[in-house]
Each structure stands twice: as C-alpha cells, then as structure tokens.
Amino acid sequence: MENKKLTCISCPEGCILDAVIDDCRISSISGNKCKKGLVFAETEIFNPTRILTTTIRIDSEDYSRLPVRSSVAVPKNDIFTIISELKKIKVKAPIKMGDIVLKKSSSAKTAIIASMSIEK
C-alpha cells in the first residue's frame, strides 16, 4: 500500500488529494470537492496528461504568431515531441478558432487546433 499526495489541477480550486494505492489500483481518494478530482487522480497516477499550448508561425498582415492548443490533454511525455513538430509548420490567414493546424499522427496523438481567429 502506498499513499500519494496530489494537487488537483482540474480547476483553479486546487484541492489537495490523498490517494491510497493498493496493488497498482487506487483504493481510496479523499480531499476532493468534486468528481473531477477522482478522474484527475486516476490519470495523474497512471498516465499524467496536460493540455499543451504554444504558438506557431502564421502568414498574416496583422499577426506574426498564432496561438494553438491540443484539442484534448496529451500525455506529459509527448509534450516536447509535439512542440518540435509544431516548430516546423507555418499556416496562412484567414484562420478560424478551432481549425486544425496539425492532424493526429504517430508522434502527436491528438489534433492541434487554432486558439483564435485571424481574419487577414
């Protein structure tokens, strides 16, 4: 049996969770104020993920960078690989919030999408 202390990052509340791990499974979690804490503890212990955000180059009159994000959280270990993938690409205005700038691939298991609209 192992006790693990985690800070839930699902929302700005930041609940401090106490998880008890028994035989590679979570046997109990306390300290969470909502259900999100349970899901967070499960993934954080066995496969931690984060939403990835960065900027990429854009061909535009008004802007030189386009903010982008992973559409869903990505495994923590993949972050630097995806960042180096994104350094290679350049998009062209117009672009709309939600447009895919990098499709799912073997190195990026989630799509990367535009965080804002750039008209020209």
Binding site: S10, C11, P12, I51, T53, T54, T55, P67, R69, M97, S115, M116, S117
Partner: peptide, 29 residues
Amino acid sequence: LPQCIHSGFGTRIFNEELTGPEYAQRFID
C-alpha cells in the same frame, strides 16, 4: 487575453478549460 495562450480560463463561465485567446474570441464573436 490574446497573449495568455495557456489554458485554465472559463472553467466556471463556460464549464470547460479554454485558453486566453479562446476565452476572448468567444466574447469577440
């Protein structure tokens, strides 16, 4: 907001985790 490209915005108002530019874009739209 357009320069706050990280996520964590709107968890209460929109009930999802948005980036700064996305939060702004929703109101701009």
